[in-house]
């Protein structure tokens, strides 16, 4: 993802999903093969699921499988269970953590017992009623599926650029960090979106390989538009939007100011410095004052 796309995705957080829509998350930690991986995969899955529950405000919106429970039939069964709870206006987030393999034709997600192939998984995702879908395949060789799983209104993220990157990946570790701390929340709105989490994870992976001065064995990819519309975590005070029409109206005003802000920023190159900063100040002061009002009414950091 280039920088322009990333900025566009980050800015897109201003246009969040409809308030009535819910987000349903399904997390699977596959076969570790050795105790170290088993434990790590389980921990990453737990962190992702916990953030999703907090963001959704309900444990019913999240199903997580790990260890021996994460067998192919259980995956099929639980994904259908979750599908039964959602409708077309909802959004679905699927997170696959663990090892994957690719033989040049088929990708396989490694599970206890029989694996699931990329086409079996694709059929399951296609059966989800939610039109907005975010699928994160954090396994090795996951890049093999990115084109196969693409679909309108679906964002697909893979830990590797293709099926040839077969080394155990670090992507899930940093994805879990992204949704569990403020580090990824670069616009400081107390929400971590998929765009922010992706930017954070890829940045951290590059930094980790650089610090070790070793050759990078994974290069994540993201395909699909507006990853910023998927809320993965709500941080600190900004958990769930209060059911308060007054606050909702203010948040709507805030969205409008954010669009003004984007317009000013887009003009940065064409405006003289003084004028740019004057315009920036005017918009940012409006935003800061409005935020004070929102905080006073919502009792601390309401977020859409």
């Amino acid at each position: 993802m280039n920088k322009a796309h990333l900025i566009a995705a980050l800015l897109a957080t201003a246009c969040a999903l409809p308030a009535s829509a819910a987000t349903y998350t399904f997390v699977v930690a596959g076969l570790g093969g050795e105790p170290g991986y088993e434990q790590r995969f389980r921990e990453h899955a737990a962190a992702v699921a916990s953030a999703a529950e907090k963001a959704a405000g309900s444990t019913a919106n999240v199903i997580s499988l790990s260890g021996d429970a994460a067998r192919a039939d259980a995956v099929k069964r639980d994904i259908k269970t979750l599908a039964a709870r959602m409708n077309a206006n909802d959004s679905a987030v699927i997170v696959l953590i663990g090892h994957g393999s690719y033989d040049g034709e088929n990708y396989r997600f490694n599970l206890p017992g029989p694996d699931l192939t990329d086409s079996e998984l694709a059929r399951l995702f296609d059966e989800l009623p939610a039109r907005d879908q975010l699928i994160i395949n954090a396994t090795s060789a996951s890049g093999a599926v990115i084109e196969r799983w693409q679909k309108p209104r679906r964002v697909v993220i893979t830990a590797t650029k293709n099926g040839g990157e077969k080394t155990a990946t670090r992507f899930a570790q940093f994805w879990a960090q992204a949704v569990a701390s403020e580090a990824a929340d670069t616009n400081k709105d107390q929400i971590v979106t998929a765009a922010e989490a992706y930017a954070f994870a890829t940045n951290q992976i590059a930094a980790a390989f650089k610090a070790e001065t070793s050759m990078a064995t994974e290069h994540a990819r993201m395909e699909g538009n507006d990853a910023g519309r998927f809320t993965l975590a709500r941080l600190g005070a900004g958990e769930v939007m209060p059911d308060n029409p007054e606050v909702a109206a203010l948040l709507s005003q805030r969205g409008a100011i954010e669009l003004d802000l984007n317009r000013v920023k887009e003009q940065k190159a064409s405006l003289p410095d003084t004028q740019y900063y004057d315009q920036l100040e005017e918009v940012l002061v409006r935003l800061a004052l409005l935020q004070k009002e929102i905080d006073a009414k919502a009792g601390g950091g309401a977020t859409p």
């Binding site: 616009n187 940012l284 935020q291």
Partner: peptide, 22 residues
């Protein structure tokens, strides 16, 4: 002022920076 505005242009909801701006 410039760096404060740059901070908020990057992170418009950055509350400590908003407070300093006000």
């Amino acid at each position: 002022r410039r760096h404060l505005l740059d901070a908020l242009a990057t992170a418009p909801h950055f509350k400590p920076a908003q407070a300093l701006l006000l």
